[in-house]
C-alpha cells in the first residue's frame, strides 16, 4: 500500500539554524499518528511542511506517492489550536465554505440544487459533531470546545486525504477535552480518516494514536544549540492493548514522569 504521506530525508534550516534534520517517515492510510516533543522542537514546522505552507530546504515530501503541492489545498485538512474558523460566517456557512469554493469558484455563492445538497452535507456533519442546534450562531458565541468542533466539521467537508491537527485541544478544559477525544476517535473510524496530530499532552497522544512519534534533537552542541535539528527520535506503533502504558523514555523527555 502506498503511504498517504512520506517524508524522505527532509531538512528544514533557517540560515544556520537547523530546525529539522534527516526526517524520514511514512504514514499509512488510516493511521492516527500522534506527534509529541518539547516546545520548539519543530512539531508545527513538521505540520507546515505537510500543509505545503513551507518547503523543506532539503529532501522531498510525497502525498500519495506524488510530490506534495507547494501550497495548501483541499487534499489536506487542518485544525489549529485557535483561529481556525471564520468569525464573519455562521456555523452553517463555515461548514459550507468548502463546498462553495469547490462548486462556485467565481462568486463563492451556491444556488438551487447545489446549495441544497451542500447544506444537507454540512448539516449531516454538524449533526455528528453535535452542533446542529447552533446553525445560525457566529463563532464568537460558541465556547472554545464548540469552536474546535466547528473547525473539525469544516475540515471534513472536503474529504481530505489527511487531516492535520496542531494542538487542537490544547486550549480546552480537561472535561471538554475528553468529549473531544471521543468525537475525534469516532470521526476517525467512521470516515476512515488518516490523522496527524501534534499535542503537548502525552496521555492524549497515547490514548488517541495508533502510532506515537517523538520529535527531539538527537545531538546537542551546548555551544551552538541551533547547530543540530530535531528528528523522529522514537516511533512507537501501538496496538490497542498497549495504549495505556507510556514508555519511560517519552515520559522522561516530555517531563511527564
Amino acid at each position: 500500500m502506498t503511504p498517504v504521506l512520506s517524508f524522505r530525508n527532509v531538512w528544514v534550516e533557517y540560515g544556520d539554524h537547523v530546525v529539522l534534520e534527516k526526517v524520514s517517515l511514512d504514514v499509512a492510510p488510516g493511521a492516527f499518528v500522534s506527534i509529541v516533543g518539547p516546545s520548539g522542537a519543530g512539531k508545527s514546522t513538521f505540520l507546515r511542511l505537510a500543509l505545503g505552507q513551507e518547503a523543506p530546504s532539503r529532501g522531498e515530501i510525497l502525498l500519495d506517492g506524488a510530490p506534495i503541492p507547494p501550497e495548501p489545498g483541499p487534499d489536506r485538512g487542518v485544525v489549529f489550536q485557535r483561529y481556525s474558523v471564520f468569525p464573519h460566517m455562521t456555523v452553517l456557512q463555515n461548514v459550507m465554505f468548502g463546498a462553495r469554493c469547490d462548486q462556485a469558484p467565481l462568486t463563492g455563492l451556491l444556488m438551487g440544487a447545489a446549495r441544497r445538497q451542500a447544506k444537507a452535507e454540512a448539516m449531516a456533519i454538524l449533526d455528528q459533531v453535535g452542533l446542529s442546534a447552533s446553525l445560525k450562531a457566529f463563532p464568537r458565541a460558541l465556547s472554545g470546545g464548540m469552536q474546535q468542533r466547528l473547525a473539525i466539521a469544516q475540515a471534513l467537508i472536503t474529504k481530505p486525504r489527511i487531516l492535520l491537527l496542531d494542538e487542537p485541544f490544547g486550549a480546552l478544559d480537561p472535561g471538554v477535552r475528553l468529549d473531544m477525544h471521543e468525537l475525534i476517535t469516532g470521526l476517525w473510524r467512521e470516515h476512515g480518516l488518516t490523522i496527524l496530530m501534534v499535542t503537548h499532552d502525552i496521555k492524549e497522544a497515547f490514548k488517541l494514536g495508533t502510532r506515537v512519534i517523538a520529535v527531539d534533537k538527537r545531538r546537542h552542541d551546548p555551544h551552538a544549540p541551533h547547530r543540530y535539528g530535531s528528528t523522529a527520535v522514537y516511533d512507537f506503533p501501538l496496538d490497542d492493548k498497549l495504549k495505556t502504558a507510556i514508555p519511560k523514555e517519552i515520559a522522561v523527555m516530555t517531563g511527564e514522569a
Binding site: C101, D102, P105, Q154
Partner: peptide, 9 residues
C-alpha cells in the same frame, strides 16, 4: 491557510 485547505483561490 484554513481557507486554502478548503479549496479557496
Amino acid at each position: 491557510v484554513k481557507a486554502q485547505t478548503l479549496g479557496a483561490s
